[in-house]
Design a protein around this nucleic acid. Structure first.
Lengths: 168, 168
DNA sequence: TCCAAACCCTTGGATGTCCTAGTATATTGC
DNA sequence: GCAATATACTAGGACATCCAAGGGTTTGGA
């Protein structure tokens, strides 16, 4: 960002909460606000790494998901469920990826309502290269130490389960 | 969301990463993906709580920031820096809040380039009520236990500092 | 003193997300 | 077998974010 602030704005907000009689929820407020800001920072890094490929994070996630599908193709509703985004967001991503020639739509063999999406040869190559760059430039330099990574996976995993993401 | 998945999709992704020779970055990848999903869940809860007030999270954050400003007003560039969003996002939020009569723009007394934004009487009331609802419906029921809240604040605080958010 | 560089805000464009509604196809139940 | 209900995808609209560019205001060095 431009210039670092002299003080942590979220810590300031937490202090404000405590001084206004909301001390009981000041900490969760700070934690949640920190999650929002962290997501913003990470998303910017990811999009920066993907820009050379003409990909956004949303499109990359779909490509990556398809690259791991054994059959090589997935129904759109399945992709929507696994990526946990609204069906219209998948439609949007597929429209653009199809326009770039990275994925193709095809009718489902037995269910006329369903549309399958699958990687093209080029899509598979781009997915592999983009993943390599993300791994080295973003995931490999996250700035979280190993112990904290484990903590995040545990804490956020519990949160997501409680939020109804999965029953596992 | 609709129906919980039988398994954690992020844990599956982590396994896929490990099986494809990227074991060294599989955990950070999972942690980062979890942050993205958690933000999505939290944002949905927040927006749901704010909907009755005709507010979005972006607009609420600006209202809350102004309500804590001693002088009662802030220059737009200051708000942009403290909220850590692009100046155009602040312009957008102010446009809408001004349209709702919750904030007002006024020229800076000594610097002709600067625009000050301040809460209107109604804006101050709405900010207070919206905060009360957020505190009870979202922050007070985050689903994170106290120890995990502290961990998140510590881990994400370190991350944000390293990312250049503040020097504190 | 005066003009170039720096700074502030806004406009316009591209993307992503969600919601609501509409069309087409399947499945269910009488 | 046929009508009612459910499911799948898409179109259109509201919002938010960022980037690039433009116009007005200040500041600072020649």
């Amino acid at each position: 960002m431009a210039v670092p602030l002299p003080r942590d704005p979220i810590a300031d907000a937490q202090r404000n909460w405590e001084e206004h009689g909301w001390a009981d929820v000041a900490a969760p407020m700070a934690a949640i606000t920190a999650v929002m800001r962290t997501q913003q920072i990470l998303l910017a890094r990811i999009e920066g790494a993907l820009k050379p490929f003409g990909l956004t994070f949303a499109r990359y996630e779909l490509l990556a998901l398809l690259s791991f599908a054994r059959s090589g193709a997935l129904p759109m509703n399945k992709a929507s469920a696994l990526l946990q985004v609204h069906p219209t967001s998948v439609t949007n991503a597929v429209d653009r990826l199809e326009g770039s020639g990275l994925v193709a739509r095809s009718p489902h063999p037995t269910d006329g309502r369903t549309t399958l999406i699958e990687l093209t040869a080029e899509g598979r190559i781009v997915a592999k290269r983009a993943t390599a760059v993300l791994n080295t430039e973003v995931f490999g330099q996250s700035g979280f130490d190993a112990a904290d990574v484990d903590q995040l996976i545990r804490i956020l995993g519990t949160f997501r389960r409680n939020a109804g993401d999965f029953t596992d």
